[in-house]
Amino acid sequence: MNCTAIIVAAGSSRRMGFDKLAASLGGIPVLARTVATFMDCPDIAEIILVTPQERMSLLDQSRFTKPLIRIDGGEERHLSVAAGLAVVSGKSDFIAVHDAARPLVSQADIAATVLAAKEHGAASLARRVTETLKRSDDSDFMIGAISRENLWFMETPQIFQADLLRSAYRHILEENILVTDETSAIEALGEKVKLIPSTSPNTKITTPADLQTL
């Protein structure tokens, strides 16, 4: 089974106020940590890195043990993924899409998601909702509870049979459907996605406070 990883790193980090992918995490840039995990993962055959050229300086290219192709992204996340899909090798049976801002994903969780995608055609790493959920009115006053049963926080990687993901992206682009992750594109085709519980922290860095908790 041949799996290509598309690592999405095209964002400008506007909410951070600085380039979060260049931020140091244990002395290593966030982007470099993410790429290294997929480089070292036996389940990944090649990497498509969707990021501006200037971010390549964050990486230690002497550690590249498998093919890595860098391409520019689009203005929206789904357009960046579409750009990555366009250069994935035709030999790839499966495609994993991962947010570069999730630098702590484990190789074990990647492997588990690859295995689930092989069995089900589509799988995503995710985390069960465990907090109490409440709904508010427009003035932020609590008005009721929401059951957390069968609710999940979506994570990445999200991994799919290659032709299925290509079909899903053709559909959303042709129909001008805006999606925030690949499972939504698969859902738009009426297909199911198997959810795999993450077994280790897989935080997405969005605000400066997120860096302080890692």
Rank of each mutant, 00 (worst) to 15 (best):
A100E: 02
T34W: 04
V50D: 00
H78D: 15
R70I: 10
G90E: 11
I95S: 05
I48K: 02
R33C: 13
G73C: 09
G90P: 07
A96E: 05
L21Y: 08
V97A: 09
L31Y: 04
L49H: 03
G26I: 12
Q61K: 12
I28W: 01
I44P: 01
A108L: 11
Q107K: 13
V81M: 00
I28T: 15
S24P: 03
T37Y: 01
A96N: 03
P42W: 03
A22W: 09
P67L: 07
I47P: 02
G74K: 00
P67F: 06
V105R: 04
T51E: 03
T37A: 12
R102D: 06
G27K: 06
K66I: 08
R15V: 15
I48A: 04
V87L: 07
D99Q: 02
A101Q: 02
L104H: 06
D109V: 06
A82Q: 09
A32C: 13
G84I: 07
V35W: 00
C41N: 08
A36W: 11
D109K: 08
R63H: 13
A32R: 05
S57I: 15
I95V: 15
I47N: 02
V30Q: 00
I28G: 07
R102H: 07
D72M: 12
G27A: 10
P67I: 08
H98M: 11
D40H: 11
K91C: 08
A23P: 07
V35K: 00
L25W: 06
T51N: 00
H98Q: 13
S80V: 02
V81S: 00
